[in-house]
Design a protein around this nucleic acid. Structure first.
Length: 416
DNA sequence: TCTGGGGTCCTAGGACCC
DNA sequence: TCTGGGGTCCTAGGACCC
């Protein structure tokens, strides 16, 4: 085994993924300006735009209303996450048949370690062509493929290969390939970092590479050091330097909801929060995880956003715990003079085992866990609306609060 | 322009411990 | 009655990605 042999990394990126999947369900969309994300007059942003819509300046993350102004003739369609997950699975199957070392980086892109697969698939460029054809045959979707010795360069290359193309950056020419590109092409360099770099005269990756590492490190800390490495084409820092396919459990699970109109209705807020908490709890159980930290997120009318966290004495995966603690956070942190635009709940600090308390409560938690798991299975089989356990819970709690003020924290029951 | 939803990682200050 | 320094946990916020 030659350890000096450079790695062969593929970055496979599906072309206009959401739009392309929608076109498979409705071929009449093909060749037209299409915007996925919601209705043209709704709150929300563009999830994906067809290439025809992009010609009018529409791009993802643009507010839907703005997209409508740019391109009123566009067809606006609601997103279908289940469809995208299904096709993402098919994409994975194709990739997995080419290399056992696949890592889905998001729903529509993946890294493959193709090192040492020459015998099977031939040289990289040929393997990429075969992959491209297989993908089209199996999913009817186009993709672009970047090939390089690092994730970073492969990713940048796949972007340059758009659309429906392949780009191979040969070993040894990475820095030369990157040098003329704008720093913004580096994943992790966004608007703010781009501005910061511009302020010291750095526009292109080559400028970055020419700079002393110490200067970058002094000015931008850890990130500066990583940037120096990246400017030479190395996988440095953050998510990039892990081995491909070595992604473990999620670090956080969250759900949030933006109201179509801002609200100050406590019932509505608490019902929404309970619904979000149930979704989070359900996903915790799917992953076999327990959370220690629950975080509430509120966005007010003026877009000002606050987060408030609470760490539990023992980890949990139960709806009831998430509902109660997030509700408590809401009650004690919501500035009621302001209407709320968005509410969300975020779980983090995961552990695989339930807390000690689980063993000391006479089996109450264990019985809950089993009941909820059974409900999860019913939902899997018959759909979300099949089980009303969650909303039943909410109703019950409300009754309790209304009938008995003592159920509200901090209130003394009045004796008749 | 009027700004979604789901994530990851980083920073920075304060509490607390040794 | 002046006050070191490291480590870890918690919390809040922000940049960034798809």
């Amino acid at each position: 085994m030659n350890h000096a042999a450079p790695r062969v990394i593929f970055h496979v990126d599906m072309d206009a993924f959401f739009v392309s999947v929608e076109e498979l369900y409705d071929p009449s969309l093909k060749g037209k300006p299409v915007v996925v994300g919601g209705k043209h007059d709704e709150r929300g942003v563009v999830s994906a735009a067809s290439y025809e819509a992009r010609k009018f300046g529409v791009h993802s993350a643009m507010p839907l209303r703005t997209a409508y102004k740019h391109c009123p003739q566009a067809i606006f369609v609601e997103g279908h996450p289940e469809r995208y997950r299904e096709y993402s699975g098919r994409v994975f199957e194709v990739l997995n048949s080419f290399s056992p070392v696949v890592e889905m980086a998001s729903i529509d892109e993946a890294y493959l370690d193709m090192t040492g697969t020459d015998r099977l698939h031939g040289p990289p460029l040929r393997a990429a062509h075969l992959l491209h054809e297989s993908m089209k045959k199996a999913t009817d979707l186009n993709c672009s493929i970047g090939i390089a010795t690092s994730r970073l360069v492969a990713k940048i290359a796949s972007d340059q290969a758009k659309r429906n193309g392949i780009l191979h950056v040969l070993p040894g020419v990475e820095a030369r390939y990157l040098a003329p590109l704008e720093v913004r092409k580096i994943p992790g360099v966004g608007k703010v970092m781009e501005k910061n770099l511009q302020s010291i005269g750095i526009r292109r990756i080559g400028d970055l590479a020419a700079l002393d590492e110490a200067v970058l490190s002094a000015r931008f800390g850890k990130w500066g050091l990583a940037l120096a490495g990246k400017s030479h084409g190395l996988d440095a820092g953050g998510w990039f330097d892990a081995e491909i396919g070595e992604r473990g459990d999620p670090k956080s699970i969250s759900h949030e909801h933006t109201f179509n109109e801002d609200t100050r209705d406590p019932e509505r807020l608490e019902a929404t929060l309970a619904h979000l908490a149930e979704k989070v709890a359900r996903r915790l159980r799917e992953h076999g995880l327990h959370t220690r930290t629950i975080q509430l997120k509120l966005r007010y009318s003026d877009f000002n956003t606050i987060t408030r966290a609470y760490s539990l004495p023992a980890p949990t995966q139960l709806d009831i715990d998430l509902i109660e603690h997030s509700r408590r956070l809401l009650r004690s942190n919501w500035d009621r003079s302001q209407a709320i635009r968005l509410i969300g709940i975020h779980a983090s600090g995961f552990e695989h085992d339930a807390g000690q308390l689980d063993l000391m409560d006479g089996g109450r938690n264990e019985r809950w866990r089993q009941a909820l798991e059974a409900a999860d299975k019913l939902r899997d089989r018959y759909g979300e609306s099949a089980v009303a356990l969650g909303s039943g819970l909410r109703g019950k709690y409300r009754e309790r609060v209304q009938d008995n003020p003592a159920a509200l924290p901090g209130k003394e029951p009045k004796k008749a």
